[in-house]
């Protein structure tokens, strides 16, 4: 592949990613403004301020940490898509990791970038279409989605997802896996504050710790 081409592909991904991101971001911020025009009323500022104070500080902190954690794993195209369509840790990233693993490509190569982008784009399209179909059929679907029988299945999606994913990755990186898994087990079992709402904060901790362990093992020639 010509060098010129390599540069132009990544550059064009960044260029179009920025344009799409800024455009969709502007549209999303326009949405509540448009509602005000249509219904002829300003937002209730008491609710607005209380709600933002209760929500934004924590989620902005988590959001900023997530950018630095997930952007290197998602690749460029995957990042521009995932940060628009959301559900990164529970859908997009596992989907991309699995796709790269099966295609036998590395996240650090352009082949990885391309496969990850394809997987995340398909996953985004399918999620969006399923939600569209669900919204259209919401009346017949509601009893099914709310059925107490199925509730535990929907609640347990993360353990069901990461159990399978862990087998694939741990079995291929046994030496590197031991320390981070032990650390996370100890932290989550013995620190009561760590639960479903704080797992987002622990992901970067796990990532940084694993990189540190990897660096030490690599320098010692174990990996």
């Amino acid at each position: 592949m010509k060098k010129y081409n390599d540069h132009s592909y990544m550059d064009s991904v960044h260029r179009s990613g920025r344009i799409w991101g800024i455009a969709i971001g502007a549209v999303l911020l326009l949405f509540p403004t448009l509602l005000s025009l249509i219904f002829g009323t300003l937002p209730n500022f008491e609710v607005l301020i209380k709600g933002v104070v209760a929500t934004a500080p924590m989620y902005w902190a988590v959001g900023i940490v997530e950018i630095f954690t997930y952007v290197p794993m998602l690749g460029a195209g995957g990042t521009y898509l995932s940060f628009i369509t959301g559900n990164i840790s529970n859908i997009k990233l596992p989907c991309a990791i699995d796709a790269m693993e099966r295609a036998g490509v590395k996240a650090s190569d352009e082949e990885g970038e391309v496969i990850s982008t394809i997987a995340i784009a398909v996953s985004s399209i399918v999620t969006t279409l399923i939600i569209v179909a669900g919204v259209i059929c919401i009346v017949p679907l509601t009893p099914l989605l709310e059925s107490p029988v199925l509730e535990p299945a929907f609640d347990m999606i993360l353990p069901a997802l990461f159990g399978g994913l862990a087998v694939v990755f741990v079995s291929k990186n046994v030496k590197l896996s031991i320390a981070p898994i032990i650390l996370m087990l100890i932290l989550f079992i013995f620190v009561p504050a760590l639960d479903s709402s704080t797992v987002g904060i622990m992901v970067p901790v796990g990532v940084l710790f694993t990189i540190l362990v990897a660096r030490i093992l690599y320098k010692k020639g174990v990996l």
Partner: peptide
């Protein structure tokens, strides 16, 4: 290559820990 594997494993280990919370 090791670095990208380490990042994936770091994330997976955090969610494995969460399973035991």
């Amino acid at each position: 290559d090791i670095l990208s594997n380490a990042m994936f494993l770091g994330m997976i280990s955090a969610f494995l820990g969460y399973v035991f919370c």
